[in-house]
Amino acid sequence: MITVHHLEYSRSQRVLWLLEELGVPYELKTYKRNPKTKMAPPELKAIHPLGKSPVITDDGQVIAESGAIIEYILDRYDANNSLRPAHGTPEYLQYNYWLHYAEGSLMPPLLVALIFGQVQKAKLPFFVKPIVNGIVGKVRGAYLGPQIKLHYGFMEQELNKKPWFAGPNFTAADIQMSYPLEAGLSRGTAANEYPKIQDYVKRMKERPAWQRAEAKVGDFGTPM
């Protein structure tokens, strides 16, 4: 049986959701973040050397990284390809693109924005604070703001053409996309500018499998 090593407020919520969509039984082990550093506890390093989540164990295998975990689970447990379009179809090309886009293109600027936000909140000498705020402000204005706006505009445009990222049907690519979309909206992205993304996130959270996964660990909360 699959064991999901779930870290609160992390990407591992996607793995729980996927397993609930497929109806695959699993064991759940939950880990709490350090309340001061917000980092994963050292116990996760006993599972994988990087000590990060998501990570699953199954039949003696240790699998990390969201995309790799999703592909492993689909290969092994989704014989009917219910959450992945058939190879060679236009929908599969879209599925594969969004599966990789989520972490490869979308998450980096969101992660940098999170780090900069934490830097601004950190306790610093009064004479350093204006310098830090100035640097952060320039990076936000010149890079982060335009990049995030570019990505959200792109996704809004795509969702204006189709209900789900790979086409007319919900797929595992939507599960992969859920985390950065929620992260962006929770970090100040102007949600009212992107009604299709807002609707997408609403429909995502209305899925019974999402709700079952969240009920097992409590409120998914704000993505880190």
Rank of each mutant, 00 (worst) to 15 (best):
97 Y>H: 15
153 G>M: 10
111 L>R: 06
98 W>Y: 14
97 Y>D: 00
138 K>V: 12
165 F>E: 03
180 P>H: 10
108 P>Y: 10
166 A>H: 10
114 L>K: 06
151 H>A: 06
110 L>N: 01
137 G>K: 00
119 V>Q: 10
120 Q>D: 15
170 F>H: 00
155 M>V: 14
118 Q>L: 09
182 E>Y: 05
173 A>W: 04
113 A>F: 04
131 I>E: 03
100 H>G: 00
144 L>D: 01
146 P>Y: 06
133 N>W: 09
142 A>H: 02
116 F>S: 02
154 F>K: 06
96 N>Q: 13
158 E>G: 02
144 L>S: 07
120 Q>G: 04
107 M>E: 13
163 P>C: 07
176 Q>L: 04
108 P>Q: 14
100 H>I: 03
141 G>W: 08
118 Q>D: 13
124 L>P: 04
113 A>C: 02
181 L>D: 04
110 L>V: 06
177 M>W: 07
150 L>P: 04
143 Y>S: 10
156 E>K: 10
170 F>S: 05
181 L>N: 13
100 H>R: 12
149 K>S: 14
96 N>K: 15
157 Q>M: 04
143 Y>D: 11
176 Q>I: 00
165 F>M: 11
175 I>W: 06
153 G>A: 09
102 A>L: 02
142 A>E: 14
179 Y>G: 02
134 G>R: 05
175 I>V: 15
165 F>A: 07
101 Y>T: 10
102 A>P: 00
152 Y>G: 01
149 K>M: 06
103 E>G: 07
138 K>N: 12
123 K>L: 09
163 P>N: 07
138 K>W: 11
159 L>F: 11
107 M>S: 05
168 P>I: 00
120 Q>P: 00
175 I>D: 10
100 H>Y: 07
128 V>E: 12
129 K>V: 15
121 K>Q: 15
96 N>Y: 11
172 A>D: 04
131 I>D: 01
117 G>I: 09
129 K>R: 15
119 V>S: 02
170 F>E: 01
143 Y>P: 00
108 P>G: 11
143 Y>R: 07
143 Y>M: 10
151 H>G: 00
179 Y>Q: 02
122 A>Q: 14
150 L>C: 09
145 G>L: 01
114 L>E: 12
